[in-house]
């Protein structure tokens, strides 16, 4: 797939439609996000590991006033870009999305709801993919079990802000998680459960289920469980699935009455 992609990107570059390509570059065995501006560099392009490409696009578009870029996107990256666009953080007109699908292993690891973008440029998307229901075990718990579970999990937090920093949907300049009104400064672990509840609530209608937060967490807190449960709630309560539909606004901020 990698070779096929490189060929595709070379053609795209040659067309002159884009000023560069946002993708991962392999350097000394490490991958880093990179803006490929020259076809010769494409040899170093790599696809793994997963990386929140939408955040890269957001920062890059912010820097440069008018240029158009191509971006190599997985399903989650595309969802993130859509949500960022709704919040005016990226201009989709300035991006050419080059969609790639995830393989089964990757998809399973993320419990991804849709491990492929809307248009797959290269590779073949998984057929009949059904994500694992990671919320199931938690929904079945009694209230006190849930409380004990999260008490145990969230006590591991060392407030490194890795979950927030990795999150492609976190674009605020000031973060409420650093506001001493809500989250006491100089206290570890953060008071249960305000830090994680605020973060989860802020992601309601926003989380696109990329799993970056959980991967970033050094304490292995199953953050995606909370986010997934809220994603389900948003769908159940309002029929809203973040990352889909370019026009749908997060119902939490619209004027309509709840049905």
């Amino acid at each position: 797939m990698e070779q096929e992609l490189k060929a595709h990107l070379k053609k795209l570059m040659a067309s002159g439609d884009v000023a560069g390509i946002i993708a991962l570059k392999s350097e000394r065995g490490m991958a880093k996000p990179y803006l490929f501006a020259d076809a010769s560099e494409l040899e170093c392009l790599c696809l793994t590991p997963k990386y929140p490409m939408a955040s890269v696009a957001r920062l890059l578009l912010d820097e440069d006033g008018a240029a158009r870029f191509a971006i190599v996107c997985r399903g989650c990256d595309e969802r993130a870009l859509r949500e960022l666009a709704k919040r005016h953080q990226v201009d989709l007109d300035r991006l050419v999305i080059v969609g790639i699908p995830c393989d089964e292993e990757m998809a399973r690891e993320c419990a991804c709801p849709e491990p492929f973008p809307s248009v797959v440029a290269v590779g073949t998307k998984l057929e009949q993919w059904e994500a694992e229901d990671i919320g199931a075990a938690y929904r079945a718990m009694e209230l006190d079990e849930k409380l004990a579970f999260w008490k145990h999990q969230l006590e591991k937090c060392n407030k490194c802000y890795g979950c927030r920093n990795a999150c492609p949907m976190c674009f605020c300049k000031d973060c409420e998680l650093e506001n001493a009104l809500w989250v006491k400064h100089g206290r570890l672990p953060p008071e249960f459960p305000i830090y994680h509840m605020i973060r989860a609530f802020h992601l309601a209608g926003k989380c696109i289920a990329c799993g970056e937060c959980q991967r970033a967490c050094p304490s292995d807190i199953p953050l995606m469980v909370l986010n997934t449960l809220l994603r389900e709630d948003m769908e159940e309560l309002f029929g809203y699935v973040s990352g889909t539909g370019a026009d749908a606004e997060n119902p939490l901020y619209t004027k309509e009455e709840m049905q």
Partner: peptide
């Protein structure tokens, strides 16, 4: 304005 990230959700909801 130093903190505003320009996400414009406030604009959607203002009656």
């Amino acid at each position: 304005t130093d903190v505003c990230a320009g996400c414009r959700i406030c604009e959607i909801l203002c009656p």
